[in-house]
Design a protein around this nucleic acid. Structure first.
Lengths: 158, 158
DNA sequence: GTCCAATGTTGGCCGGACCAACAATACAGA
DNA sequence: TCTGTATTGTTGGTCCGGCCAACATTGGAC
């Protein structure tokens, strides 16, 4: 579902799931366009940000932090390795693992991406005054978190 | 980006675009699962709802109302025609057009889908108390609408 | 030593959101 | 009246994100 030129049916207009979708669609359009200026996609940013914040990690570790699928992770790491944004080295202590480390070039790239992302957020939230923005963020956080928890029960046995 | 098992980086956690995405992802999972019980997808529901609310229309008209792409519309109309949920008839007044009409079977189906959709919304919003739900809907509406307008300027020259 | 779990990798699938091109038809302006 | 432009339906793609299954390798627990 994209953007209608005429009024969509009342049944759909106020539907929370649809609103969430439209918001995500809009946000993604803006963010994708911003990141495209640097020739990357959302995945790349998520990965670099994770590496920078938590330091070197195995691909499996990165999967757990980002929620990206294992199979997709391979491709993204390949991508970023080709651009010298990170290094893939075998873990001497566990030969199953690759240890992924961000490079100086990767950090530099990340700085640039941070800027682009910040601008994109600004553009996305532009229609709302600052107070409402915070409120929205708060509501979305409180909406989303319980749904995440309820999958593979954090705090339960597992 | 799916659901992480460990804390994702701070950079991403509060990002409005990411929150919107997570919300949409959750909503879609719930809605898709609900609609799957009736063997349909979101597109089918959107189309039937539009037909029921605005009456018969050409495919192009439906495209304008729903925001679904022309090429996708063909497939969805095919799908629903096969299941006798709608009829495709040539417009005698404009031989380019097909006039799409919902059938009684389509209406019946729609009633069922409405029920499923309502339950899905409930599940999606469950983490929030009623007051916050309304607030969220309001905020999302006010966030999304201006973005829609700014594309192909409603009210501008065009 | 055996068996199960985790890891990285390959190769897929699906759905939603697009885009380009084309034939048929309609319509407005010269 | 004719000519060019728009609209409509349709075909046949592309891309990305979100998955899943299977496999070989390696670790670790029993």
């Amino acid at each position: 579902m994209n953007i209608p030129e005429e009024a969509p049916p009342r049944r759909l207009r106020g539907l929370p799931s649809r609103l969430a979708n439209q918001a995500a669609l809009t946000a993604n359009r803006i963010v994708d366009r911003a990141l495209a200026q640097a020739g990357v996609r959302r995945y790349h940013y998520a990965l670099l940000a994770t590496l920078e914040e938590y330091g070197p990690a195995s691909q499996a570790g990165l999967v757990r932090r980002t929620g990206i699928d294992r199979s997709d992770m391979v491709a993204i790491v390949n991508d970023l390795a080709e651009r010298d944004c990170l290094k893939r080295a075998p873990d001497p202590e566990d030969r199953r693992r690759n240890i992924i480390t961000i490079t100086p070039a990767g950090r530099a790239r990340l700085v640039e991406l941070d800027r682009l992302i910040a601008a994109a957020q600004e553009e996305f939230l532009a229609p709302l005054p600052p107070a409402d923005r915070e409120h929205l963020i708060d509501l979305l956080t409180r909406l989303v978190e319980p749904h995440e928890d309820r999958r593979q029960g954090i705090g339960s046995i597992r």
